[in-house]
Amino acid sequence: MERRKPTLSESESILTVRDLSVEFDVEGGRIRAVDRVSFDLRAGEVLGVVGESGCGKSVTALSLVRLLPSPPGHVVGGSVTFEGRDLLRIPIAELRAIRGKRISMIFQDPMSALSPLHRIGDQLVEAQQLHGEIPTRRAWEVGTEWLAKVGIPDPAERMNAWPHELSGGMRQRVMIAMALMLKPDVVIADEPTTALDVTIQAQIFELMRVLKDAKTAAMLITHDMSAIWEMCDRALVMYAGQIVESAPVRELFQNPRHPYTAGLLRSMPRGPRTGRRLETIPGQVPSPRDYPKGCRFADRCPHVWSLCREHEPELFAVDEEHRAACHLVPEGRKP
């Protein structure tokens, strides 16, 4: 796979997220799960969103298309602009016409996204007919073609199968076929391969590269840094509900500027055995019930100084494409 440098014309944002904040009802109040998240998804790129459990990456993804169950979740601020319209504010009927057709989703667990009561073929037909007038016979053919495209053997036969008759890898392929079938402009994939074996994951990744040829923009949400390396052009790193770093993937891996990103990369076991211990990030993610006043990573950071505990760092520009929310950046220091 070639890593493309985005040119100016490609850099236009297709999905523009500004200051997105999401809160959850909890016993005795509210916690903020996503805090003033801003980013652009550019046409034709694969944007990775990486972070550990509870960092807010999935909540961000669900909130973009208003799929976050509410209550307990509430989008309390920000905007998500797609073709000049704010998805967070348009009438739900208008959103439904966009969701599935123009912006589609792939989730970790395909069994919960497919209806167990309908055959695969019927679900593929229904998805098409929801978004346009197409004769059932034609829609059935299109569905069969897509099953073949995502590498399902005997697609004509599988159209008549029930979801439970397929393996996990097959079901995930059906989900991908369904997500791509209507040629969306944006695909949001939340841990699409986390439940799958590596050889199946490799097949799915190959498939998702088809997206690139189709000029579809994609967001890949994952906890797996190596998946980011393999699949993405750019990546956002999230920590405690905030974006702490954003950069083109190579730059992120070779020149991480936030101590959390650097720590994550160093704590991954990789390469030949050395017998040495892994580097770790000491401590734990702070509870959203009491985030510290300054930087949320301060208590775990090897570079912490007084400023970090006083002032929350903004996303400082390292260069045009690379930003990190760390007070080391203006000082010209690296973690």
Partner: peptide, 10 residues
């Protein structure tokens, strides 16, 4: 998670 995994492996 990766950072916790590293602690347990150590």
């Amino acid at each position: 998670d990766v950072s916790v995994q590293a602690q347990v492996l150590n």
